[in-house]
Simulated scan of single mutants.
Amino acid sequence: MNLHEHWLESWRQLGASATDESLYLQLVACYSEPHRHYHTVQHLTECLALLEAVEDQADRPAEVAIALWFHDAVYQPKRHDNEQKSADWASRSILAAGIDHSVADRIHGLILATRHNAAATGRDAQVLVDIDLAILGASPERFAEYEAQVRKEYAWAIGPLYRRGRRKVLEEFMARPTIYSTESFRSTREAQARINISRSLAALR
């Protein structure tokens, strides 16, 4: 996938008359920060590729695309307001591009849905959140890589602290009736996600 071409096309579909090249470079720089190991350009690229496969399920695929571009724009592992800051940045950027406030508000809400603290509501939020959580149902090899990447991002957390926190996150996903909200992700990733998470929880114990 050519990220720059995807960026230009997403803004064109959103209705922007011009795109901010410096904003693109800022975002790529953010996803390339040295403290990131999972929330990187790799994750962004995987998410955008998944959207291409399921964009017909979204009501406003261009809005989902821009939300994906910004959803981890701000990422500091020790903070709890990353999604809020990312959503605020997206909203400011959309308004600066001369796009309607209603679009900015919807994308702001989509990014906040990636906090994963409640079930996603609305087709676009469900598609976005399922894409963001697709890694849970990845192949065992990619899931193992993801687990190692997340651990590196939390290298500052000593063993017991990390295991408790990670266990809590994974147990919350396992407790859901379904991890994924859309049928396409449930049919292709739900079973594997539960296998992956179960193995991870066993290792954490």
Rank of each mutant, 00 (worst) to 15 (best):
L14T: 09
H116I: 12
Q26W: 05
Q76Y: 13
E5Q: 15
V103A: 08
L14Q: 05
S91T: 02
P77V: 04
H35E: 15
H101L: 11
W7P: 02
R123T: 02
D88M: 09
Y38L: 14
A90M: 04
K78T: 15
V41W: 06
C47R: 04
R106D: 06
H43W: 10
C47N: 10
Y75I: 07
R106G: 01
T114N: 01
A67M: 03
L50Y: 13
E9D: 14
A125S: 05
I94L: 02
Y75C: 04
H37N: 13
H43M: 12
T40H: 13
Q57T: 09
P77Q: 06
Q84Y: 09
A29I: 10
P77G: 08
N117Y: 15
H116S: 08
I111Q: 03
R60V: 03
Q57L: 12
R36N: 15
A125W: 04
H37Y: 14
C30W: 03
C47H: 08
T40L: 12
H6A: 11
I99K: 08
I99R: 07
Y24C: 05
Y31E: 09
G109S: 00
Q26D: 11
V54E: 05
K85H: 11
R36W: 15
A65R: 03
Q84S: 08
H37P: 12
V54Y: 07
A67Y: 02
D88A: 10
T19V: 15
E46T: 14
L68A: 03
L27K: 03
Y38R: 14
I111M: 00
L112V: 02
D20M: 11
E9T: 14
L14D: 05
A16Q: 09
R79P: 01
T19Y: 15
R12D: 15
A120K: 01
D124M: 06
Q84M: 10
V64A: 04
A97K: 03
H71F: 01
V74N: 04
A53H: 12
L25T: 15
L23K: 08
A16D: 11
S10E: 01
H35Y: 14
T45F: 11
I131K: 03
L110S: 04
L68S: 00
V129N: 04
L23N: 08
A104C: 07
I99L: 15
L128N: 04
H108Q: 04
D124W: 00
Q26S: 12
A16T: 09
A104P: 02
P77K: 06
S91Q: 09
A62K: 05
T40K: 12
K85I: 05
H43D: 13
L51M: 09
E9Y: 09
V74L: 01
D88T: 05
